[in-house]
Amino acid sequence: MKRRVVIIGGGVAGMQTALRLHAAGIGSVILEKDSATGGKLRDWHKLFPTFTPASEVLDPLRRAVGAAGIEVRTGAEVVGLDGRGAVLADGTRIDGDAVVVATGFTLFDARIKEEYGYGIYDNVLTSADVERMLNEGTLSMKNGDRPRRIAFLHCVGSRDEKVCQRHCSRVCCVTGVKQAMELKERFPEADVFNFYMDIRMFGSGYEEMYREAQVRHNVHFVRGRISEAAPTIDGRIQIKAEDTLTGRPLRMSVDMLILLVGMRANDDNRRLADSASLTLAPSGFVQPADPFLHSVESGAEGIFCVGTVTAPKNVGETLAEAAAAADAVADYLKNR
């Protein structure tokens, strides 16, 4: 009998899971709430630490999904689920033999950290804006000028009690290093300063990349968190921080302030979790059955989870986890 798995979310996690299931002879349907698959990666420029264009990951996945004839329903927002399918916003029920939750994360809204003036001052950007502008080839100051001094601020919406985001989003540190290098290449005459609380280079090649940014690109790393951004009379942005390694307050004006926004749990995780008795971690991400032997099982019968719906992850980890999820789903279907 032909088995069908309902996969919620058509980002890299959902697509890779569908492809691995297909390889194991199991059919699936991908429910994507946007108008196209690809998730956040669609707006991303290059991936750390290799500077691989995001399209070089995304395009092969999309092509393979097409070639495998995997059913994709776009504009399909899921409002409820159980181990035998999902319910869409329009009330339609999509039935299956198992469900994979691959709904990803939400980018932290930098406007909430009002002191940084995002949405208020020109030339305060987020890391996501930078990726989009690099893709469009439009990265410059609002007036079209080339920036002479750029500051990055790490941990915007991460490790911050004040905005109810206590967790570390992990990938922003290395994104800050990557973008510092990209900007330095684009604007070699600019001084680049990264303001950080801790630098967490957890992945293979990341520490080397950090060192390269320091030594080869002369990126200045200042251990201290920017306290506020304010406009200067010549349209620049004044920032203040403590240079904690010298124990002195520090201030400077910059042409561009880039906020490295964190990954936070989707608002509708609560609704989905309630509909299917899933457990949420205090951070709001879905909590897997256990972090070791059942990291892709939700703990609820027939429901699996993969990718950043359970925690901040990079693309490589997500793709690898998708293979693990497909494997767990296949096991589950075989034993039923």
Partner: peptide
């Protein structure tokens, strides 16, 4: 002021 003023310092 005690602050390190990068705008004022000659780098």
């Amino acid at each position: 002021p005690r602050a390190i003023d990068i705008d004022r310092n000659n780098l």
